[in-house]
């Protein structure tokens, strides 16, 4: 039997995550790897919103912030385990996305961009200013969920960075699986249809506002869980995760790799997450390089790196 493109993508992703550690010279690489997965998760959600449904958000870091702070606050105030807190955070993000999404998603193009940007800015301002709750710009610590200790008592002793590498990796594969399922499903088809032509989607019965909202809520779940994962493995969180620059980074990762494909967007996350690590030697030039990469890829590879490259390769094969 021929493997479907979905299965191939998932297998490739899982194999890459599982085998990469064989080539890691130090535990530092586990750390970079799990950062890639954390960003990859948020970006996979944006693939649903931007790649499938064609809607822009410049404020998704707001949901990352909600997810992150849920893991810091819910254990203190509600006595929840941090993992349960992540679920509560995702539910909260989804709920907020549902409320905010209704009016915001009526807007189009640049108007949607500025409205979502405003939403993200508001979240990060609340996180930075409500210092008595959130610790303000200094940030706050996040309790350990005790999962590693649990594994250790079960006989599997992983280093801290290796554990979070594996954990984030598994969450990412699950996230990618869900997003790929969605692509070929009736919902995914409706989203891609309204991306192609809203008026035609309406005439075949697609409730355009409702489906945009679904994509927005789904992407908020992803962003929120990404924030929770980041908080849990860093054990510390600052309002920067919710900031404008983080929103921009997420959108750039999505579009850089190829918003239409989950694997492409995860590649984008990989490139943009590793770039600063590689460039630490030339820290002065980090911004210059980042800016150049963003511009060059978008000018010369409009569909993103992966789709453009694969088209080039296929074109040569003919």
């Amino acid at each position: 039997m021929r493997l479907s493109s979905k299965t191939t993508t998932l297998l490739a992703l899982a194999a890459l995550i599982a085998l990469a550690p064989l080539f890691f010279p130090s535990s530092y690489y586990f750390r970079v790897g799990s950062l890639i997965f954390v960003n990859g998760l948020a970006v996979t959600g944006l693939v649903v919103l931007t790649g499938y449904a064609g809607q822009i958000s410049l404020g998704h870091a707001g949901f990352v912030g909600i997810g992150a702070y849920a893991c810091a606050l819910a254990p203190v105030h509600l006595g929840l385990n941090p993992i349960a807190a992540a679920v509560v955070g995702a539910a909260l993000s989804g709920g907020i996305a549902w409320l905010v999404g209704r009016p915001i998603l009526r807007l189009k193009g640049y108007y949607l961009a500025v409205a979502s940007l405003g939403f993200g800015a508001l979240v990060s301002m609340v996180l930075a200013n409500e210092a008595q709750v959130t610790g303000g710009p200094d940030g706050m610590t996040v309790p350990d969920p005790g999962l590693r200790a649990l594994l250790k008592s079960a006989g599997l002793d992983l280093s801290n960075s290796a554990f979070w590498y594996a954990f984030s990796g598994i969450v990412l594969v699950i996230g990618a699986w869900l997003a790929l399922n969605l692509y070929h499903s009736p919902t995914g088809r409706a989203l891609r249809a309204l991306h192609g032509s809203e008026v035609a989607a309406r005439t075949v019965g697609v409730d355009v506002a409702g489906f945009k909202l679904r994509a927005f809520v789904i992407s908020a779940f992803y962003a929120s869980l990404s924030g929770s994962l980041l908080a849990l493995q860093n054990k510390f969180i600052t309002p920067d995760v919710a900031g404008y620059m983080h929103s921009i980074e997420l959108v750039t990762m999505t579009v850089l790799g190829g918003a239409g494909s989950v694997l492409g967007a995860i590649c984008g996350a990989m490139i943009l997450t590793t770039l600063p690590q590689v460039l630490t030697v030339f820290q002065e030039y980090e911004q210059v390089m980042l800016g150049l990469v963003m511009m060059l890829v978008m000018i010369f590879m409009r569909d993103g790196l992966l789709p453009s490259l694969s088209r080039k390769i296929r074109g040569r094969g003919k």
Binding site: L182, A190, A193, A201, V206
Partner: peptide, 12 residues
Amino acid sequence: HLHEKGPVLADL
């Protein structure tokens, strides 16, 4: 669409 749509969760 009207014949094939269903709960998002089932699709995910």
